[in-house]
């Protein structure tokens, strides 16, 4: 475990916990895309199937349980909580996420490492994670104003992905370990999606103005 990997996991953990805390504390999910949260819950559900079969480490298992628990809790809060659900902006959060799930499913059936159910679902989760943030980015552009917690959420997710890329580079040079090219390409595409957001996030931070994404 290298520092980039640990920092990446901690940043990822912070992103989901910050979001869950926001929703739990202020009983509002304004600005949060339910579609993105459902996609992340699906990503974790299809990726962490090995939690029952392969034991890697206590850390690995605990983190998987936290990610599963927090992502499903967030979906539950937005869908079911009698107060939170009122602040969900369903008119704006209209990204048809089936248009993301189906292509990822097909791509996993076409391009994978091994043709086993577990491997296909794992590959599907890698592709889906790469695009899961799209409904949230679209919602941020539609609502134009970004309340700082949602901005922080996207920022932390982007930081987690960037740190994972540093982790892969570090492992390549130190352990001669290379991640599978599917993981590498999907991870790169996912991180590039955040690059645009980062630019506007830093611009607004530098000029100390409210973050406005171009329409």
């Amino acid at each position: 475990m290298n520092i980039f990997r640990l920092a990446g996991d901690m940043t990822h953990l912070a992103s989901v916990l910050v979001l869950l805390l926001k929703i739990h504390t202020i009983k509002s999910c304004a600005g949060v895309s339910l579609k993105t949260q459902e996609l992340y819950a699906l990503v974790f559900a299809t990726r962490y199937l090995d939690i029952f079969t392969d034991f890697i480490s206590v850390y690995n298992t605990v983190m998987k349980l936290i990610f599963l628990g927090s992502s499903f809790s967030i979906v539950w809060y937005i869908r079911r909580h009698k107060i939170v659900r009122r602040s969900y902006d369903k008119e704006q959060d209209t990204f048809r996420h089936y248009f993301l799930v189906l292509p990822c499913l097909l791509l996993a059936l076409l391009i994978h490492e091994k043709f086993t159910v577990k491997e296909l679902l794992w590959t599907f989760s890698i592709y889906l994670e790469a695009v899961a943030i799209l409904p949230q980015l679209v919602l941020l552009q539609r609502t134009r104003n970004i309340d700082n917690l949602t901005g922080q959420y996207v920022f932390l997710l982007g930081a987690y992905r960037s740190l994972y890329i540093l982790n892969w580079i570090y492992r390549y040079f130190t352990e001669r370990h290379f991640v599978h090219w599917i993981t590498w390409i999907a991870g790169l595409v996912q991180t590039l999606l955040y690059a645009d957001f980062f630019y506007y996030y830093f611009e607004s931070w530098k000029n100390n103005v409210k973050l406005q994404l171009p329409a």
């Binding site: 996991d9 990822h12 690995n60 983190m63 998987k64 994972y164 290379f178 991640v179």
Partner: peptide
């Protein structure tokens, strides 16, 4: 599964 196969990342 050999080492590289084990998916040790989250």
């Amino acid at each position: 599964a050999d080492e590289s196969d084990v998916k040790d990342e989250l």
